[in-house]
Simulated scan of single mutants.
Amino acid sequence: MAEDNTPVFNIQRMYLKDLSLEQPNSPQILLEQQQPQVDINLGMAAEAVAEGIFEVTVTATVTTKVQDKVLFLVEAKQAGIFEIRNVPQEQMQGIVSIVCPQMIYPYLRAIVSDVCTRAGFPPILLTEVNFQAMFEAQQQAQAAEANGGSRIITGAN
């Protein structure tokens, strides 16, 4: 019987892996009338959990401050389990770093917005993210680091 080398890509599960909400300066800070500053950081991680099975996570950390005091902080980590088999190795990193996060991110956006609303604040709407551009920037940074951070300049003297 011949071995089946057909590429496989299946979503096994999407789930909320971690969620936290902190309001360290409540209730006093809620009396402030100033517009808060919002800082949003995104992170992405992937790891193999079994042969051909990968967990990919996208994390959003939203910190809102009034002056130098934290109004609220939300950290949400949305994850997905993906079956990826018989895919050429050179395509694997792109699938795990671009395709999978693009599938996870809408769930993360909804969770962050919902948690802010349930906490009594206006919803924070995370902007769309170009995971392809993020991946390419990361690849360029790694290549520059591998070259010792130096640039090769060619041309006539």
Rank of each mutant, 00 (worst) to 15 (best):
R13I: 07
Y15H: 02
L16N: 15
L16G: 06
L19V: 14
S20P: 00
S20Y: 00
L21D: 03
L21K: 01
P27M: 02
P27N: 06
P27G: 06
Q28C: 05
L30Q: 13
L30N: 14
E32S: 13
Q34S: 15
Q34P: 01
Q34R: 14
Q34M: 15
V38Y: 03
V38L: 07
D39M: 12
D39W: 04
D39G: 06
I40W: 08
N41Q: 14
N41W: 06
G43K: 00
M44T: 14
M44N: 13
A46C: 10
A48V: 01
V49C: 03
E51Y: 05
E51T: 08
G52H: 01
G52A: 05
I53Q: 08
F54K: 10
V56M: 09
T57A: 10
A60V: 10
A60F: 11
V62N: 03
V62A: 06
T63R: 07
T63E: 10
V66W: 10
Q67R: 10
D68Y: 04
K69R: 05
V70D: 13
L73F: 14
V74E: 04
V74T: 07
E75N: 06
E75G: 04
A76Y: 02
K77G: 07
A79W: 10
A79R: 03
I81C: 05
F82E: 00
F82C: 04
E83F: 14
E83Y: 08
I84H: 03
I84C: 04
I84P: 05
R85S: 11
N86Q: 05
N86A: 02
Q89F: 12
E90L: 06
E90Q: 15
Q91V: 05
Q93E: 15
Q93H: 15
G94S: 07
G94W: 09
I95D: 08
S97T: 07
I98T: 13
